[in-house]
């Protein structure tokens, strides 16, 4: 079904999840991208710091998230996708550290995903091209990681979605893993054939694509029905800002410098019928707290506008 969603980070608070879900409902959202990654921040992982959140047993974690699940249900918000903590592998970290990221964090993330009855979980492929010398070698390592999770994902009916991400050279942004749609579809098809189930899909991140000048329409059309999940956000083409679509302009005509037209054309062409999900948590921090509801409503309005665009091409929710 077509729907509108937004990530839970900065909205759904552990202290009172129902409040956040009510805000989403009131704003006009149907779905929520649950930010599981916010429980194990990536900056800490790169410093080889693992907090003890995922050291809890699955039962403890389920107990912890039970109010969130109930709140979502009570408000009629569907948790359609979630984001696994990342990175899932830190180069040069001790073996035990990376083993823990797989065996503890990734495996428990899948179990939490199943607990929420969420069909899609987004993962970041490993950023190892510079270390290993090629993108092929980098993917091989990611595939080993995915292979470790795939049987479990199949059993739980979850599709793991790899996302187009970037890498940095100082302040410069460079394409990172999963930025080649042709390679991605080959790999997804191969893996799904191997497991006889849709264990692997794709999450198209508009902001990351914009940073490395990817042609949205081409990329989406190439992915076709392998595209399961979206991370919609905007930036200036320079930094990963996770801002509201249509925010950025680069010339005096003040037209959007992000190819939103290509984005919708691409979705139309593949008859995308899933959730238009915004990954815009920083927006909520940028605006005053009292304006958060208004900001959410504005985001939902953009989602509705696009839903209309998609529906007018013959897709009905």
């Amino acid at each position: 079904m077509l729907g509108i969603g937004v990530q839970s980070n900065n909205i759904i608070l552990d202290s009172c999840p129902i409040e956040g879900f009510k805000m989403l409902k009131q704003a006009g959202f149907h779905c929520c991208d649950f930010s599981l990654n916010s429980y194990l921040p990536n900056s800490r992982l790169y410093d080889l710091e693992l907090n003890d959140f995922f050291a809890q047993s699955v039962e403890e974690l389920e107990k912890f998230f039970a109010p969130h699940k109930k709140a979502a249900k009570d408000t009629g918000i569907c948790i359609n996708q979630m984001h696994m903590p990342y990175p899932n592998y830190v180069p040069n970290a001790p073996k035990e550290f990376n083993d823990c990221l797989l065996e503890n964090v990734a495996v428990k993330s899948l179990k939490i995903c199943a607990f929420f009855e969420c069909p899609y979980i987004v993962v970041h492929a490993f950023k190892l091209a510079r270390h290993l010398g090629s993108e092929e070698a980098e993917w091989k390592k990611t595939e080993e990681f995915l292979d470790a999770l795939a049987p479990m994902a199949k059993e739980m009916g979850i599709t793991i979605c790899v996302e187009n991400i970037y890498t940095n050279m100082g302040n410069r942004i460079l394409e990172g893993p999963c930025c080649d749609a042709r390679k991605a579809i080959d790999r997804i098809d191969r893996m799904n054939e191997k497991y006889g189930a849709e264990v692997l899909g794709f999450c198209f991140d508009t902001g990351h694509a914009n940073l490395v000048g990817i042609d949205f329409e081409d990329f989406i059309v190439t992915l076709g029905n392998r595209l399961k999940v979206l991370h919609i956000h905007d930036n200036d083409g320079i930094g990963d800002l996770h801002q509201i679509p249509f925010t950025f302009t680069r010339n005096r005509e003040n037209m959007s410098s992000t190819d939103w037209g290509g984005f919708i054309r691409g979705l139309r062409r593949i008859k995308f019928n899933k959730v238009l999900s915004f990954e815009t948590a920083p927006v909520l921090m940028a605006f005053p707290k009292n304006m958060r509801q208004d900001v959410l409503m504005f985001l939902a309005k953009i989602g509705e506008f696009w839903l209309d665009e998609l529906c007018s091409s013959g897709l009905k929710s």
């Binding site: 080649d180 042709r182 914009n210 000048g213 990817i214 042609d215 081409d218 083409g237 950025f248 302009t249 680069r250 010339n251 005509e253 037209m255 959007s256 410098s257 992000t258 190819d259």
Partner: peptide, 18 residues
């Protein structure tokens, strides 16, 4: 080549080596 989306240079013709 680069394409130009209202001042933002993006991948244009022949940028995709595939």
């Amino acid at each position: 080549q680069c394409g130009n989306i209202n001042g933002h240079l993006v991948r244009g013709v022949c940028a995709d080596v595939n």
